[in-house]
């Protein structure tokens, strides 16, 4: 005996496409209707002034908690880099733009730490997978989006730069979790 499906034939609703009326088949009335809408918007100067953000002068109100801008490497409460060089983020990254070199940690509370931590911000697609993957919440995306550079090399952010970004943005967006140590 096969299991009875838990839906009934009467649950299915067939939705027919609505038949076109005469005015719809003759297009013109509909087209004029559409043009009325476009025209109405053309002369709505007030709506335009309210919606448009004139970028360099005005800035958008970002939702800082969730905006995915440039990365930062967090520091723990002793000012050391919080990363434990577990390579989770490098593995998770779909764009393969994180390059880490780990080394034995000089501190007793963890085994490894990164001596090199490069993110190619040009290859990055700002998906936030690295942030999801990190077990100690060491890498995070910040609400900073003014990313400029004169060359490709300049856009590869190294450990120092990423730590600097943390220093710059820690007031704006505090580190999510307190430091997790004891690895």
């Amino acid at each position: 005996m096969t299991a009875k499906p838990d839906w009934k034939q009467t649950d299915i609703i067939h939705v027919d496409q609505p038949e076109l009326s005469m005015t719809e088949r003759m297009y013109l009335p509909q087209i004029f209707g559409g043009m009325k809408t476009t025209l109405r918007h053309m002369f709505k100067k007030k709506l335009r002034d309210e919606t448009v953000v004139q970028y360099p002068e005005q800035k958008r109100q970002l939702r800082k908690e969730i905006y995915r801008g440039v990365h930062r490497l967090n520091r723990d409460d002793q000012g050391r880099v919080a990363c434990v060089a577990c390579f989770m983020c490098e593995t998770a990254c779909p764009a393969h733009c994180i390059h880490i070199e780990g080394a034995e940690s000089p501190w007793p509370d963890r085994e490894k730490y990164p001596i090199k931590f490069d993110i190619d911000e040009l290859r990055c697609i700002y998906c936030g997978m690295c942030e999801e993957a990190c077990p100690v919440d060491a890498i995070e995306l910040t609400p900073e989006y003014h990313l400029v550079g004169g060359s490709r090399e300049e856009m590869i952010f190294d450990k120092e730069k990423l730590l600097n970004i943390f220093d710059r943005t820690k007031d704006e967006k505090p580190r999510k979790n307190p430091n997790i140590t004891g690895y």
Binding site: H41, R48, V52, Q54
Partner: peptide
Amino acid sequence: KISAWTQDRY
């Protein structure tokens, strides 16, 4: 301009 105005842009 017209494309912008119809889409509420400048």
